[in-house]
C-alpha cells in the first residue's frame, strides 16, 4: 500500500485517505459544451509517468492536497496544498 504524505498528518497509509486522482479544471457551467463538461467529468490522461493527483485526508485532518507521483514507480515529489507553492511543505519518504 502506498504511503501518502499528507502535509498535515505526515505519511499515512493510502487507505486512510481518499483518492481523487488527476484533477481537471472546471469549465464555465454557463458556456461549456457537453464535450467540455464531460471531459472534465470523465476523461483522464492516465499517464504512465509523472502525474499530479489529488488526495483527501478523509480519516485524518480532512485536507485536500495534491502530490506528484510517478504512476509506474510510485516515486513521489513534494506534496502541495491547494493554493500553496510546490516545495512549501515537507519532503516525501520515497
Amino acid at each position: 500500500m502506498l504511503l501518502v504524505p499528507c502535509p498535515n498528518c505526515g505519511p499515512r497509509n493510502a487507505a486512510d485517505l481518499s483518492y481523487n486522482g488527476e484533477s481537471r479544471p472546471r469549465p464555465d457551467p454557463q458556456t461549456c459544451s457537453p464535450e467540455e463538461w464531460r471531459t472534465y467529468l470523465y476523461l483522464r490522461d492516465n499517464p504512465s509517468g509523472w502525474l499530479v493527483e489529488s488526495w483527501y485526508c478523509s480519516s485524518g485532518c480532512r485536507k485536500h492536497f495534491t502530490i506528484e507521483r510517478h504512476t509506474l514507480t510510485g516515486e513521489l515529489r513534494t506534496p502541495i496544498l491547494p493554493g500553496s507553492k510546490p516545495g512549501a511543505t515537507k519532503g516525501s519518504t520515497k
Binding site: 504524505p5 498528518c9 505526515g10 505519511p11 515537507k90 519532503g91 516525501s92 519518504t93 520515497k94
Partner: peptide
Amino acid sequence: VVRHRLQVATARA
C-alpha cells in the same frame, strides 16, 4: 534514512 525522513515529515520541524 527512511526513519529520519518519516520523522521529519510527521513531526513539527
